[in-house]
Amino acid sequence: MQTREGALAFAPWRRMVGGLVRRGEEARGAASALSTLVPRAAYFPDFLTPPVEGGPPELREGIDRVLATPKSRLRHELALLSASGGRPWAGAELARGDTAALAVLGANLRTYHREFIKPVWRHIDAATATDRALRTRALVDGGTRALLNTLRPMAVWEPPVLTVDYPVDYDLHLQGRGLLLVPSYFCWRRPITLADSELRPVLIYPVDKTPPSSGASPASSAASLASLARLLGPTRAALLYEAAVLACPTTSELAHATGVSLPSVSQQLAVLREGGLVASRRDGKRVLHTATPLGHQLLGRS
């Protein structure tokens, strides 16, 4: 919201947000308050991105984790924000863990999500799910080295060092803790990490933001492959199923799994992509395919 970068990816979203901010007092207040906590600067507080264990948390759980930040950490990180030139909203109240200020912060986070994120969640979900599937395929095929090589050119793996295109000079020593890779829709060009090296090491990196096709949303009540075949036809139903259960299969692997010729598979996959049920990405000489979240819903796998 605070930059013009990534016009092709974010311009439609910025226009939507701009309209909501102009028309709605609640949306405008949430955006104004939160922008003071995440300014366009080299630092913003780590407590706003709480740790994730066992998969992405629900929104309510994530906000609860933010609001449960220890007072000592609130005080320390908000002081760092102020020292870097930021002017955090309700800074003094938040720093001492004031209950009323924390309640307003939670309300602002919920409003921001409802007004600005939820309308485009389908696009975000599809982009991040496709990214996870592609990188999982790389991990299955070639192990950790192949997975980390998929991060080129923004990150280069030269054992034992992962060199990342990062806005500041910063060394992070894992010390056996591992590195959590977090795909992000709104991250732009460069990966980011937490400022506090004592926290769990994470690398938040941008995903491909190619806009998905805007085909009609099919009904999600088909819970069996038989009913799905009646809706899509047997070939497309079989391809969608295999794209969902295999680890990012190639066109050839889908042809082998379904017993359908390569030219026919390519044609049917194009129809599934137009309907927003399958996403495809080129990987060298091959093309990898995965079912989108909408495709998984149609299969009854969500």
Rank of each mutant, 00 (worst) to 15 (best):
Q2N: 15
G6F: 00
L8N: 14
W13K: 03
R14S: 01
R15V: 14
R15G: 11
G19R: 07
G19S: 06
V21S: 01
E25R: 10
A30N: 02
A33C: 10
L34P: 00
S35C: 13
L37Y: 00
V38F: 04
V38I: 15
A41P: 00
A42K: 13
Y43H: 07
P45G: 01
F47H: 02
E53H: 11
P56T: 15
P56W: 13
E58I: 01
R65Y: 07
P70N: 08
H76L: 12
E77H: 05
L78I: 03
A79S: 12
A79N: 06
A79G: 14
S82N: 13
G85E: 04
G85S: 07
P88E: 01
A90V: 03
G97T: 09
G97Q: 05
G97S: 08
A101E: 04
L105Y: 01
G106F: 00
A107F: 06
N108W: 05
L109Y: 02
R110C: 02
Y112L: 07
V120P: 00
R122W: 08
I124N: 01
D125A: 10
A129S: 11
T130K: 09
D131V: 02
A133W: 00
R135I: 03
R135T: 04
R135P: 08
L139D: 09
L139V: 08
G143N: 10
G143M: 08
G143C: 12
R145I: 15
R145F: 14
R145E: 12
A146L: 14
L148K: 03
N149S: 14
L151F: 05
R152M: 10
R152D: 09
A155Q: 06
V156E: 11
V156D: 12
E158L: 12
V161C: 13
V161F: 11
D165G: 13
Y166M: 05
P167F: 12
P167D: 11
D171T: 13
D171H: 13
D171R: 14
L172Q: 06
L172I: 11
G176W: 11
G178P: 04
L179R: 05
L181N: 07
Y185P: 01
F186E: 04
W188S: 06
R189W: 08
R190Y: 14
E198P: 15
R200L: 09
V202L: 05
V207F: 02
T210F: 09
P212F: 01
P218F: 05
A222S: 13
A222G: 10
A226Y: 15
A229C: 15
L232G: 01
T235Y: 08
T235F: 10
E242T: 08
V245A: 08
L246N: 07
E253Q: 15
L254A: 04
A255V: 15
H256R: 11
H256P: 15
A257S: 10
T258G: 06
L262W: 14
P263H: 10
S264D: 12
S264A: 14
R273M: 08
R281D: 09
R286F: 11
H289A: 09
H289Y: 09
H296I: 13
L298Y: 04
L298C: 13
S302L: 10
